[in-house]
Amino acid sequence: MNKRIKTLLKQAEVYKKQGLLEDAKVEYKIVAKLIQNSENIQNKDKLLSAVSKKIAALARHAEVVASAPTTPEMSEHVNVLIKKLFSFSKDNKNVSKEEADLEGAIALAKFGQFDAALKEFERLLSSASARLPAAKNILRCHVTVDSSDLAFAQLDRWKSEDLFSTEQNETLRTFLEGLLEKKKIKKGPKPAEVPSPEKEEDAVGGQPPEPETITEEDEEAEDISEIENEKDDSDEEFLDISAVAINFDSGPHAGEQVELDVSFQSGNIISLIISSKDESLVKNLKVGSKLDDVHFYSPIAIFRGSGIVSAMTKIASGPKQGDYSLDIKIESI
């Protein structure tokens, strides 16, 4: 058999063993193509069918991984550990024990351990300092696991038990309504396949919930209006790009990678100075030219993406006279 195919098969096996299922699949697909296109391989069909079996097995495996429960119920031992490890204020003298316990209980809920969390929150209702947040989190747990009936029943019970003042009862009701409203909004559009990183809020959606479903900032009901307005991509401010490496696919530098420093950046436009002696670099470029393969060097890592030439001028005066100023608009990173 072809040596290249052998190498690829070995790679695919290693990737598979390491759980890099997507990467293994890519290798097998290349192998399949190579076999298909090869003239001098005997029993092509047999080989092809063997490879597609491998691909199918990978797909099944990936399916099992993807459908594994994201918040399975943990043992008592694990829950005790979670409580301990995630109640960060437990050694802080300025924080009451109940408030520290509250942190632990919130962590349990964030890890999807709703029954255990509810037990804790219920226990904490007896503490004056933790009572209101504990109640809010009880409501939150019910809403998260889709039992809003239980949440309303709970509200009624608290009312009849006189556990809270009239004002607090009202706060709790508004809080619950806010949660439900928010959930309705979140359920609206189909959630993306890979949930975008959430802020500290409930990640309740049509998808199996990720462990984090409970927020810590549950102080006041007004928080909810903020949550509704929250933009998912608020963190997508542009990274500082210090340099770029452009892979040219045509022109005098086709096939070359050229690294250039960024002299200035404004949002998603970066400016480069190209010395007159490197004029050939800009020969094939004009405003609107697309650069399909650019490495953007940011302070923390390099990102691969594409850009469009948005301006190009020959500098007419000053120390850089004769050099080119090239603006590239970052299209995608």
Binding site: D23, F86, F88, A107, K110, E198, E212
Partner: peptide, 26 residues
Amino acid sequence: QYSSTRKLVLKGVDGVVFVADSLDVR
């Protein structure tokens, strides 16, 4: 997909080891 768990576990961190995978494909 475990983005928010990652964030939760990171809470209160004092030091980080970033493990990078040397495989080309990663």
